[in-house]
Write a protein that binds this DNA or RNA. Structure first.
Length: 494
RNA sequence: GGCGGCGUAGCCAAGUGGUAAGGCGACGGCCUGCAAAGCCGUGAAUCCGGGGUUCGAAUCCCCGCGCCGCCUCCA
């Protein structure tokens, strides 16, 4: 007999036979934009996952906004891999569109030369942020045939039409157009941002698959010769074609930013649905924007912050990664120098803890320590499984370091336990990639400086002691005075 | 005007029905020769506001307010 505090009425307010499956800790759940719900992730093919991410347009060096998107995909991918799945990840490079052409024109450089330079810089930035390279980085300019072939199919099916040498997608043929972005075509303000008189589309909602080139572009030879005329692919067909070519008609996860949801993703999906009748992917994952003082970081707002700037200010890739990871991917991330420097501070405390742990003395076992480690392991897994809740993982790390601090600087711990803790932290770091485990200095020269400092301290010559500490610092070594004596750690290089 | 998102301490931020994690900073104390790191203590009568549902709401519903994004060949 069970007595409910409220007499049990609340249990009757819902149908008795419907028991929603409680989320299991081992299930990986992500928020799917298509359904608007947090769903349990299941891959289409056992043991394998196929992911597509909208990459950069190679007209200028990207700012933090793009890299946040890439970082979210990186975390997703690392977590899937940690769960034992084999990931194929495709990121497109837009090297042939209005923006890239405009940039080439503005700099007076050949298109290919400019875009390849920017691609190299993009890869450098990714490496700097420790973002794993994708499996494929297909370039738009190298897949024009695929885009043409999809467009021809759409024309054959009567889902696209030609007007004055441009080809448009006919949105009216697709009953559930707007489902992904929640946009209702009837209520859109057609012409709010575009002068309709310039275009020959049947409906303002229709979008370009291939557009006829301008005289300028014609002269420079930037076009494809087709049965419709000299044309260039539109934005949406590019991603749709690349995704389907490398990942198949339906793949697992499409990741990108919320700013691209409409019309871009809606249109990508529309193209795929029109061609195959199937969904382009099972899950759509959207990361929120990067803001600066409450505004979207963008070139047009003139408030963009590039990695090059942060680098010049002395920030490392890990620090920037950590800064961005402090905000859940679905929440807007407000950039500020103050927040960035606070992040740096918090991270360096965590890293120092890692060094102290590594150098921790041997000591007795402790149930309390075992418990704290277990809590870290379980908390980490539960948080990651809950829609990639990285900020929660960071909280677990801080909690753990606080609980273990007395052990690593004073009481000591059994070698086995230390190994387990290091291995757990490495597991966490395989996803976050923000920690380092500073080595205790071994070099003779360094140890000599340390013992000189010790001697000076014993002699009461604090001026010399402090100078030596500063000297070590300049050489990249940090002196930490613990209850068990002074230790010197080599700080991470970058 | 439409659609979507966000609003939690000085700042950053987790928490989506069970009585407000964590980080940075500040202040007081401990430790230290001094720092750094760490430890102890001090912080949200309360989660933008107002109603409602509930035994119970930051969490659900309704009405507002503020900010942000998107609104069709810009990415």
């Amino acid at each position: 007999m069970v007595i409910f505090p409220d007499g049990g009425e609340r249990y009757l307010s819902t149908p008795l036979w419907v028991f929603p499956e409680p989320p299991r800790r081992e299930d990986f759940r992500i928020t799917n934009t298509l359904t608007g719900k947090k769903e349990i992730f299941e891959s289409l093919e056992p043991g394998k996952v196929r992911i597509y991410t909208c990459g950069p347009t190679l007209n200028r060096r990207p700012h933090l906004g793009l890299y946040r998107r890439m970082l979210t995909a990186d975390i997703l991918r690392r977590w899937l891999e940690a769960r034992g799945l084999e990931v194929t990840h495709v990121v497109n490079l837009t090297d042939f569109d209005d923006k890239t052409l405009a940039a080439a024109e503005a700099f007076g450089r050949p298109l290919k030369e400019l875009t390849e330079e920017l691609a190299r810089e993009f890869f450098e930035d990714l490496a700097f942020l420790r973002i794993r390279p994708a499996t494929h980085y297909p370039r738009v300019s190298e897949h024009l045939e695929e885009m043409l072939s999809l467009t021809r199919k759409l024309l054959q099916k009567g889902l696209a039409y030609e007007r004055y040498s441009s080809v448009y997608f006919d949105v009216s043929k697709l009953p559930d157009y707007g489902r992904l972005s929640g946009v209702d075509l009837a209520s859109l303000r057609a012409g709010a941002t575009v002068d309709l008189d310039e275009y020959e589309k049947d409906s303002p909602a229709d979008f370009t698959l291939f557009k006829r080139v301008t005289i300028q572009e014609l002269k420079q030879g930037y076009f494809v010769d087709t049965e419709w005329g000299k044309v260039r692919p539109g934005w949406h067909i590019q991603c749709a074609a690349l995704a389907m070519k490398y990942l198949g008609e339906t793949f697992d996860i499409h990741t990108s930013g919320t700013d691209l949801l409409f019309p871009h993703h809606e249109n990508e999906r529309a193209i795929a649905r029109a061609l195959t009748g199937k969904e382009l992917c099972r899950y759509w994952l959207h990361s929120a924007l990067v803001l600066v003082e409450g505004r979207k970081m963008s070139v047009s707002a003139g408030n963009e912050v590039t990695l090059a700037e942060l680098r010049a200010a002395g920030y490392t890739g890990r620090e920037i990664r950590f800064f961005m990871l402090r905000t859940h991917y679905r929440k807007p991330l407000n950039f500020s120098w103050k927040a960035l420097s606070e992040a740096r501070r918090a991270l360096s405390n965590l890293i120092l803890f890692c060094g102290l742990l590594k150098a921790a003395p041997e000591g007795p076992s402790s149930e309390e320590a075992e418990e704290a480690l277990r809590a870290l392991r379980e908390g980490f897994e539960a948080a990651m499984n809950d829609d990639l809740n990285v900020p929660q993982v960071l909280a677990e790390l801080f909690r753990f370091s606080r609980r273990w601090y007395p052990l690593v600087v004073e009481k000591g711990l059994p070698p086995r336990l230390k190994e387990e803790a290091l291995s757990t932290l490495e597991d966490v770091n395989r996803i976050l990639e923000v920690l380092v485990f500073p080595e205790e200095a071994r070099g003779e020269e360094i140890l000599e400086l340390l013992s000189k400092r010790e001697a000076a301290r014993r002699a009461g010559d604090y001026g010399t002691a402090d100078r030596l500490r500063e000297e070590l610092r300049r050489r990249g070594f940090l002196v930490v005075d613990t209850p068990r004596g002074s230790r010197v750690f080599r700080l991470p290089d970058e």
